Computed example of a mutant assay.
Amino acid sequence: MIVPLFVGIVAVFLILFCASELWSAKQSDSWPKTRGTIIESHASHGSKHPSAYIRYEYKVGNVSYEGDRLSYSPSEERFYGNSGNLQARFYKGAVINVYYDPNSPSDSVLVPGYEQTLNEYGGIISGFFMLGIAVLVGWIIHKNRQGNAKPS
């Protein structure tokens, strides 16, 4: 009974995480912007596809912040083609627009919004599928235990 429970818990966390990312992406379309400066920009080869690591600083009121999120999109390539183009656009010292969450100014992006792909939607669908499997397996285990119980 522990495995279906564990799978169900993982599924709920997956659903909540992906839904939260989609919600933040949608909200970022209406975030205010401020000026910022790129303080670090270099190629990152940590995944299958090379990407750019970009860190920037910005101020909201009199408070300084740093960020490194380019966007909520799973692929920077939709904006600039590849990591080299990203680095050309977001080079160290470049002055850029930073979009920040007015309720939590430390949350920011350089490109607001979200390209609808299957990454987060796929995560949500997978989460519901896993949750369904966990419920089904749990129900089967429960029914088998009831069937094996001997009446007194």
Rank of each mutant, 00 (worst) to 15 (best):
E21W: 04
L22I: 13
L22S: 06
L22R: 09
W23T: 10
W23Q: 10
S24T: 10
S24A: 12
A25P: 00
A25H: 00
A25S: 01
K26C: 07
K26D: 12
Q27H: 11
Q27F: 02
D29G: 12
D29Q: 11
S30W: 03
S30D: 12
S30P: 01
W31R: 00
K33A: 10
K33T: 06
R35Y: 10
R35V: 09
G36C: 00
G36V: 00
T37P: 02
T37E: 15
I38Q: 06
I38A: 04
I39L: 03
E40Y: 14
E40I: 09
S41M: 00
H42D: 14
A43G: 14
A43S: 13
A43F: 07
S44D: 15
S44C: 13
G46M: 07
G46W: 02
S47V: 06
K48R: 13
K48P: 05
K48W: 09
K48C: 09
K48D: 15
K48N: 15
H49K: 11
H49L: 10
P50R: 03
P50F: 01
P50S: 07
S51E: 15
S51H: 13
A52R: 05
A52C: 06
Y53L: 13
Y53D: 12
Y53N: 08
Y56N: 03
E57V: 10
E57P: 04
Y58V: 02
K59E: 14
K59T: 11
K59D: 09
K59P: 00
V60M: 04
V60C: 05
V60Y: 01
V60L: 01
V60N: 09
G61T: 06
G61N: 06
V63Y: 00
V63Q: 15
Y65W: 04
Y65H: 10
Y65K: 09
Y65V: 08
E66Y: 15
E66F: 15
E66R: 15
G67Q: 09
D68I: 08
D68L: 11
D68K: 14
R69C: 02
R69T: 06
S71Y: 08
Y72A: 07
Y72E: 05
Y72S: 02
Y72R: 05
Y72L: 10
P74H: 12
P74D: 08
S75C: 07
S75N: 12
E76F: 12
E76G: 11
E77H: 14
E77K: 13
F79T: 01
F79C: 04
F79D: 08
F79I: 07
Y80P: 00
Y80N: 00
Y80H: 14
N82K: 01
N82A: 01
N82R: 02
S83W: 08
S83T: 02
G84L: 15
N85W: 09
N85R: 14
Q87G: 09
Q87W: 07
A88V: 09
A88K: 15
R89F: 13
R89C: 04
F90D: 01
F90S: 01
Y91T: 06
Y91M: 10
Y91A: 13
Y91N: 11
Y91G: 14
Y91I: 03
K92A: 07
K92Q: 14
K92C: 05
K92Y: 07
G93K: 03
A94D: 11
A94K: 14
A94S: 09
V95R: 15
V95T: 12
I96T: 03
N97M: 12
N97V: 11
V98Y: 09
Y99K: 03
Y99C: 03
Y100K: 03
D101W: 02
D101V: 00
P102F: 05
P102A: 13
P102I: 02
